[in-house]
Computed example of a mutant assay.
Amino acid sequence: MSDLPLWGSIAFAILVIGGATLTLLGCIGMLRFPSFYARIHAPTLGTSFGMVGIVLASALYFTLIQGRPVLHEILLVVFIIVTTPVTLMLLSRAALHRDRSEGDETVPLPNLHPKDPPPTPGE
């Protein structure tokens, strides 16, 4: 990394460490939360924001080394930002459908208007 200026090395290190830390926090959240519905939220945020830091570090490093803007990493950001929430919704809806069809009592109830009567079992 001798070709990098000092400011570039510092910015690169901060982005990589920040991105890795956010990804690690998402993984720890996945292990610590008690239910599937709570667990799917933490890794989604951790991977999304952690990935942004690591991809920005990659773009900065190769821009400084090659002496020209390297922007193709933006495609990675767009792809992961679009696919991660969609995957989260599909997984959570599939698990919710499965749990409700099996009659699991611990499943979160749908949002009800205060005047609506509570759902009857099997509904």
Rank of each mutant, 00 (worst) to 15 (best):
M1S: 03
S2K: 13
D3I: 06
D3T: 11
L4G: 01
L4I: 12
P5L: 12
L6Y: 10
L6R: 10
L6T: 11
W7V: 13
S9A: 13
I10A: 07
I10F: 13
I10N: 06
L15F: 10
I17C: 13
G18I: 10
A20T: 15
T21W: 07
L22S: 14
L22I: 12
L22K: 10
T23Y: 03
L24H: 05
L24R: 03
G26T: 14
G26I: 09
G26H: 00
C27N: 04
I28K: 01
G29K: 09
M30R: 09
M30V: 11
M30L: 15
L31Q: 03
R32Q: 13
R32M: 12
F33Y: 15
P34K: 06
S35W: 02
F36C: 07
R39D: 02
R39F: 10
I40R: 03
I40H: 09
H41S: 05
H41G: 01
A42N: 07
P43M: 01
P43T: 00
P43K: 02
T44Y: 00
L45Y: 02
L45E: 00
L45C: 02
G46T: 00
T47K: 01
S48W: 00
S48C: 11
S48R: 08
M51I: 03
V55N: 06
V55H: 09
V55L: 12
V55S: 11
L56W: 00
L56Q: 03
A59M: 14
A59E: 08
A59W: 03
A59C: 13
Y61K: 09
Y61R: 14
Y61V: 11
T63N: 12
L64I: 15
L64Y: 06
L64M: 07
I65P: 02
I65R: 00
Q66C: 00
Q66L: 05
Q66D: 15
G67A: 03
G67N: 08
R68P: 00
L71T: 15
L71S: 14
E73S: 09
E73V: 11
I74M: 12
L75P: 02
L76I: 07
L76W: 10
V77P: 05
V78P: 03
F79D: 08
F79Y: 06
F79Q: 08
I80K: 04
V82P: 04
V82D: 02
T83D: 05
T84M: 13
T84V: 13
T84Y: 01
T84C: 08
T84L: 13
P85K: 02
V86H: 07
V86D: 01
T87I: 13
T87D: 03
L88D: 04
L90P: 03
L91R: 04
R93M: 14
R93I: 04
A94P: 04
A94H: 11
A95K: 11
A95L: 00
L96R: 14
L96Y: 04
R100G: 01
S101W: 07
S101R: 15
E102K: 11
E102R: 13
E102V: 14
G103K: 08
G103D: 02
D104F: 04
T106S: 14
